[in-house]
Design a protein around this nucleic acid. Structure first.
Length: 869
RNA sequence: GCGGACGUGGCGAAACUGGUAGACGCAAGGGACUUAAAAUCCCUCGACUUCGGUCAUGCGGGUUCGACCCCCGCCGUCCGCACCA
């Protein structure tokens, strides 16, 4: 028997090398087996891997290894989402070139990932900042442009006047730039857009086909696309003296039933009418500036106090020209949605009510519950969810109608009057892809003074980022790199300039999964390879990507199909969103955050290890550098090995939930590794032959049969649980199997050959079942047990259904729905005999206590409920 | 503000389609082995109890023979909001 402890430090690199030598995870593009493409969202090379990566890639790895064992041709690749702002920030702060910073990080993180023992085909690896990747992206963008999927238009950005740069919403803090502290301005820039909004309906309705996606992600996308059936109509406008103006005000509404409750109109600060009014009003100009300081984030706009300024123009109510609705410029109306103008109905919309109260506008209730028509609106708007119980009041010809009837009637009349039309509106906006930054894919266009916007000829791709750039001045380094910028126009050969904007990095991640099918192809995607591998069968990543990345990728697949680069529209067949890794936080008595390594347990609490001072521990939250509650995967792998870390990540907590990293939990996983090693060592000594015949003979012994039943039911359930990504349940079953094997070893019944054969069968199955989770330990055990070859190449064990069947069944007996006892009976027992047996059962007689039986409910094979009174 | 999710022992959780609430693990307590410690093994482990049971799945109602599960209303926590990736 092997008395030594299992040493992952020696074993893990050995087996990683063995898999490498055997090419176990290298995938060709042709196989007679069914294909399975498993993909985890590729990492941003931030410097080092974190525990979130460990969790994400472990889950994908379990699936990849399991599917391989089940006989699939598995594609499980890895790459790097390598463009983005952190590289530029590093360049500014540490004077290191973004490219060098990025590739150095990739080297570090690749080594870290390899130490996890992932079953990845590394021959397909690429980084999105490789010109050999982004060149194809440029070509596809030009093809999208030719196909009418691209548009140039003006849009609003957050502008930092000091840093001379566009700011991301997260870089705008309280209306100020994060680095400069200068108040942020809104600025209009001509930018490139992908016309995703042309696909709103398609992207929405196809969500119904994504049945293997989490319902919540589909719902989030549905809400994001935001389809609404409404009415666009226009008001006649007049000035303060009552003179009719030439222009009309077009609004969009989904609540046209409340038209008689309208008491004002609100338009965006960026609306044409507001701009015009600002020309001769300092007040309105100031208001426009104030709105601009809110930035472009929808959240900031919605949270801000509702404010407005009157424009001294009035909208005539379409059904009662004597009613004048004052028109306000308001900070809560978004220019990009609908018409950038709304009518306000304060009684039935909280935002409108707050606004009306502030500016002393009328509040007219027009919808009320039947029988409760005398409604008083206080500080809370009346929003009735139950449409059936309400009807219209105070609304002339609409009185008494339901909300839907009133909507139809208003729409019909306004259409008849020629000033309205029913429209479907979507919240989804076109995808602005221009970024005024260096570390991104150059947008392959040239601006010519005579020809305008001109494509870079395909044979001149890729447009490569220049290396000689400096970050010592504000603004985009590409924009001041005259040598790179200056080109001759491909059409007229005049002096022209390159586009200096680069792509949003979401473009890079919108097609990488397709590139993995043929990472070295001279086309963006080799169609044969993509037709074979796509769609991704199982995609795994964080819920934070539920909307943008996944929606953009769905759009990209459609765009690539149109331009002939892909044959499918939905790139991800099944989606899984995993939870975060969280950890307790610690604060010293002086209020500084402490790292987990700086504190130690004392009694019920924590102390600072160096000083013994008490430490305040707070509940676990997302690991973050700022709160110092970060555990470095390298430290864990060094101390316990990758298998222990992997096992812990999969145990206990369901994968979609946040998992709390605890030292005690890791130790538990570590002890389990050693426990398996001891048991395998013990059983490996048994000199018995496991054959069909010896197993059949073993089944004749009750104790052996019992263990065989556990083994085979574990085989059946672990496979099911892994397929359904219920790793925590699979692991609970494995614990049960180990407990059963250990118990059989300690009772002395191991002496018989029958038992030894059964135990050998059990441990071999055990090793195969945990192999996807702890692959290194599994290889080591497999070898000790004397099996040929690698366990990662071995087929998944099959269970014997005959061993799962039983001729007895335990029935729960209830009286009035409460459990009173149980009864084990033969499977085929008749209903009458079962009822009789239950009614005579001691516990039933006792709890009936003289009551008479009214009814007996029998759930076959499960339960009998006796209803008595 | 708008949208979404989640809530079960000391802790992570399980409970398959409305049918035994708490599998499995962690922590804790007790014991064995040991000169001792570590490691390992065994036992106990929701609360109360007159030992018959009773109460328990965030709170309050409802549907049902039966509800962690379905419905209505609250409370709490977390996440997203279009240039972070």
């Amino acid at each position: 028997m092997s008395s030594e402890r299992y040493n992952p430090k020696v074993s893990e690199p050995t087996w990683q090398k063995a898999w490498d030598m055997a090419g176990s995870f290298v995938t060709s593009n042709s196989s007679s087996k069914p294909k399975y493409y498993v993909l985890e969202m590729f990492p941003y090379p931030s410097g080092r891997i974190h525990m979130g990566h460990v969790r994400n890639y472990t889950m994908g790895d379990v699936i990849a290894r399991y599917r391989k064992a089940c006989g699939y041709d598995v594609l499980h690749p890895m790459g790097w989402d390598a463009f983005g702002m952190p590289a530029e920030n590093a360049a500014m702060e540490r004077k290191v070139h973004p490219g060098k910073w990025t590739y150095d990080n990739i080297a570090t993180m690749r080594a870290q990932l390899k130490s996890m023992g992932l079953a990845i085909d590394w021959s397909r690896e690429f980084a999105t900042c490789d010109p050999s990747y982004y060149g194809h992206e440029q070509r596809m963008f030009i093809e999208f442009y030719r196909a009418g999927l691209v548009e140039r238009k003006v849009s609003v950005v957050n502008w930092d006047p000091v840093d001379q740069t566009v700011l991301a919403n997260e870089q705008v803090i309280d209306g100020k730039g994060w680095r400069s502290g200068a108040p942020v301005e809104k600025r209009e820039l001509a930018q490139w857009f992908l016309k995703i909004s042309d696909f709103s309906e398609e992207l929405l309705s196809a969500l119904d086909t994504l049945t293997d996606w989490p319902e919540k992600v589909r719902l989030m996308q549905r809400n994001w696309i935001g389809k609404s059936e409404g009415l666009r109509f226009s008001f006649a406008l007049e000035d303060a003296e009552g003179n009719l103006l030439d222009e009309r005000l077009t609004v969009y509404t989904t609540r046209h039933d409340t038209i008689f409750g309208a008491s004002f109109c609100a338009i965006s600060a960026d609306h044409e009418l507001t701009r015009k009014a600002a020309e001769d009003s300092d007040l309105i100009t100031a208001f426009r500036r104030e709105c601009a300081s809110l930035g472009t984030s929808e959240e900031a706009i919605e949270r801000a106090e509702k404010k407005g300024v009157p424009l001294a123009i009035y909208a005539r109510h379409p059904f009662d020209p004597s009613r004048k609705l004052p028109v306000f410029a308001a900070n809560f109306v978004l220019i990009g949605y609908g018409e950038g103008a709304v009518f306000g109905c304060p009684a039935h919309d909280q935002r409108d009510l707050d606004f009306a109260r502030k500016y002393g506008l009328d509040v007219i209730p027009v919808v009320a519950r039947k029988g409760e028509e005398n409604v008083e609106i206080g500080a809370v708007a009346l929003i009735e969810k139950d449409q059936a119980s309400v009807h219209l009041i105070n609304s002339a010809f609409l009185n008494g109608m339901s909300v839907d009837e009133a909507k139809s009637e208003v729409a019909r009349r306004l259409e008849e009057m020629g000033i309205g039309e029913r429209t479907t509106n979507y919240r989804l906006r076109d995808w602005g892809v221009s970024r005024q930054r260096y570390w991104g894919c150059p947008i392959p266009f040239i601006h010519c003074p005579s020809c305008g916007v001109v494509e870079v000829p395909l044979d001149q791709l890729p447009v490569v980022l220049p290396d000689d750039v400096t970050f010592d001045k504000p603004g985009n380094p590409l924009d001041r790199n005259e040598e790179w910028k200056s080109v001759s126009c491909p059409k007229c050969s005049q002096h022209a300039q390159r586009e200096t904007d680069t792509f949003d990095t979401f473009i890079d991640s919108s097609w990488y999964f397709a590139r993995f099918c043929s990472p070295h192809a001279s086309e963006p995607v080799d169609l044969d390879a993509a037709n074979y591998w796509m769609p991704v069968d199982q995609y795994i990543g964080g819920i934070e990507h539920a909307i943008l990345h996944l929606l953009y990728s769905r759009f990209f697949a459609r765009a690539m199909k149109i331009t002939g680069h892909l044959g499918i529209e939905e790139p991800f067949k099944s989606l899984f969103t995993q939870g975060m890794v969280i950890h307790e936080t610690y604060k010293s008595s002086s209020g500084e955050w402490l790292m987990p390594s700086q504190v130690s347990r004392e009694g019920d609490g924590w102390v600072e290890t160096s000083s013994g001072n008490p430490v305040l521990a707070s509940p676990a939250e997302k690991m973050s550098k700022s709160k110092r509650n970060v555990i470095d995967p390298d430290d864990i792998i060094d101390k316990y090995g990758a298998d222990t870390a992997r096992w812990f990540m999969l145990s206990d907590t369901p994968p979609e939930r946040d998992i709390e990293w605890t030292e005690a939990g890791v130790l538990g996983a570590w002890r389990f590794v050693q426990r398996i090693w001891r048991i395998i060592g013990e059983v490996a000594e048994f000199d018995v032959d496991v054959t069909a015949a010896s197993l059949r003979a073993a089944s004749g012994h009750p104790a052996a049969l019992a263990l065989r039943r556990v083994t085979h039911s574990t085989i059946a359930s672990v496979g099911e649980d892994i397929s359904a990504l219920r790793f925590n349940r699979a692991i609970a079953r494995l614990y049960e199997l180990v407990n059963a094997i250990a118990a059989s070893l300690s009772t002395g019944e191991n002496a018989g050959t029958a038992m030894r054969v059964t135990q050998r069968e059990a441990v071999s199955a055990l090793v195969q079942l945990f192999a996807p989770m702890m692959p290194h330990l599994a290889e080591e055990c497999w070898k000790v047990l004397g099996h040929e070859g690698l366990v990662c190449e071995a087929p998944w064990p099959a269970h014997d259904p005959a061993l799962l069947a039983s001729d007895e069944v335990t029935i729960v007996i209830q009286v009035n729905g409460k459990k009173r006892g149980e009864l084990t009976v033969e499977k085929g027992l008749s209903r009458e005999a079962l009822e009789e047996a239950c009614l005579n059962h001691d516990s039933v007689v006792r709890s009936l206590n003289g009551m008479s039986v009214r009814k007996v409910i029998v759930v076959p094979g499960k339960l009998v409920n006796i209803v008595a009174a």
